[in-house]
Amino acid sequence: MSASVYIHPIGFVSGPQAEDGAAIRLAGSMVYASRFALVVRDEGKAVARRLFGARGFEEVVAGLDSTLASEAERQWANLQKVHAPIELGERTIRLDQPQIMGVLNVTPDSFSDGGEFLEKPEAGRAYAAAMLESGAAIIDIGGESTRPGAAATWEGDEKDRVLPAVEYCASMGAAISVDTRRAGVLEAALQAGAHIANDVSALRYDPRSAELVASMKCPVILMHAPGSGDDLHEGGDYDDVVSDVFDFLRLARDRAIAGGIAEDRIMLDPGIGFGKTLADNLALINALPLFHALGSPLLLGVSRKRMIGALSNEEAAHQRLGGSIALAMKGMDAGIHMLRVHDVKETVQARNVWRGMRDAALTDFAQLPMD
């Protein structure tokens, strides 16, 4: 194993004025970072860690060999990369503030809605409409349960579940992503009006998926999960979960680009809850700013996750709103571009208040006299 480098943003300010300009805007978001840690790993272990400020990068990188220096320079540029809006049919999704993706599960055993939207399409239609009216930028439709121990879904059944939901969401003019790892389901959904492939296997499960995404030129979300077969949770053993997930997503992105998928159509998801312990999930959430160094917009799915119950009296999924909002706010503070949530109205309200505070912070320092 060769050595590898990682640049972690570790210090944050309300705006560049707070540090007289010595802060970077993180991945085009409303978050500013002023302090960083450059970590070098070798043979699976951290062997060096150097701290630096926003104006100290050149000095730190000068001490690295040429290969590591080149990768560090790439990551440093990625941390400051401004991501273009996503064009989805008639909708344009800007990535300069956190956007909200609303979840619409059409499975018989959904942990969040108990299969209501599969059994009652009119309820699913009304729920999707309410999410759009509440401010959801995208509706994410899923027809297969990916919880631990769930049985694999036959492709025909998944199509029968997903396509009616795609059609009624498309009739509302919604931007639609399809949460599937099967190329046949994805192709049919795109033809029915969907726009984004949300692949929890990072295009590994179905060998046809990468070629389809490349040919259809649709945006794709690549998520980390340790398993590549039916059980996505299998094999979750990590030397260092943060670095290992980072490396996985870097390879997944590079494979996608090599397969003909445009880099600017790729979004990455660290896969909270997939093949990870509570400690793993907490480590990833605390290290979210690092993943901007990969150079792609980031999606975070933490809504109603099992970890919330583990931290709060084992509350059931429908009782996890407070924890979901807390984790969403953590994602916002990390510069996450897209939040996948069940409780759209409440999360949009939290985002709007968060943005108001961020906007105000950018002008606060203008009121202070300069020395």
Rank of each mutant, 00 (worst) to 15 (best):
E122Y: 05
T153K: 04
D42H: 12
L290K: 05
G11D: 10
P85Q: 09
L26Y: 08
G135S: 14
E59G: 10
P289T: 04
A194N: 07
P297V: 02
D157F: 01
G102D: 06
N78C: 11
A77Y: 04
D20G: 09
G271N: 00
R41L: 10
P369Y: 03
V47F: 07
V47W: 06
P289S: 07
G322I: 05
Y238H: 09
H318S: 13
D179F: 02
G143C: 14
V103G: 07
R125H: 13
V200G: 06
Q191C: 09
D240E: 15
L300A: 02
H233L: 13
R181P: 03
H342P: 07
Y6L: 06
R204C: 06
G273I: 04
V39L: 13
P219F: 02
D231F: 12
E167D: 14
T107F: 04
P108T: 05
A128N: 12
A258T: 13
S243C: 15
A210G: 08
G259V: 00
P108Q: 05
D247C: 09
A214D: 10
A175N: 06
T180I: 02
L190E: 06
G323E: 00
S312M: 10
A150G: 12
S243F: 05
E58F: 08
L311Y: 05
R208H: 14
R49D: 15
P270G: 09
K81I: 01
V31E: 13
P9T: 03
T363N: 13
A279L: 14
V13K: 08
D359E: 15
H195F: 00
R50M: 07
H233W: 06
D157Q: 04
G124S: 13
K276C: 14
V344T: 07
G301L: 01
K345F: 10
R50S: 12
V178M: 03
R358K: 15
R208F: 05
S312C: 11
N78P: 05
S296L: 03
L212N: 11
L163E: 04
A361D: 15
L203W: 00
A72D: 10
G335S: 10
W76T: 03
Y32C: 01
A361R: 11
M267H: 03
F36W: 11
R161V: 03
D206Q: 12
L51N: 14
D65E: 15
I196V: 15
I308P: 00
G235N: 13
G63K: 06
S29M: 04
A194F: 00
P369Q: 04
L339I: 03
S110L: 04
D160M: 11
E73H: 13
T277E: 06
A214C: 07
F248H: 10
S14P: 07
A334K: 05
D254C: 11
G156S: 14
V341W: 00
S112H: 07
D254E: 15
I10R: 13
G114P: 07
G135M: 11
E211W: 01
G331L: 04
L288P: 03
R250S: 15
Q75T: 04
P9I: 00
L190I: 08
E187M: 08
S134A: 15
A123E: 14
E73G: 08
Q367I: 13
E158T: 09
G335R: 06
P369M: 05
G295K: 01
Q367H: 11
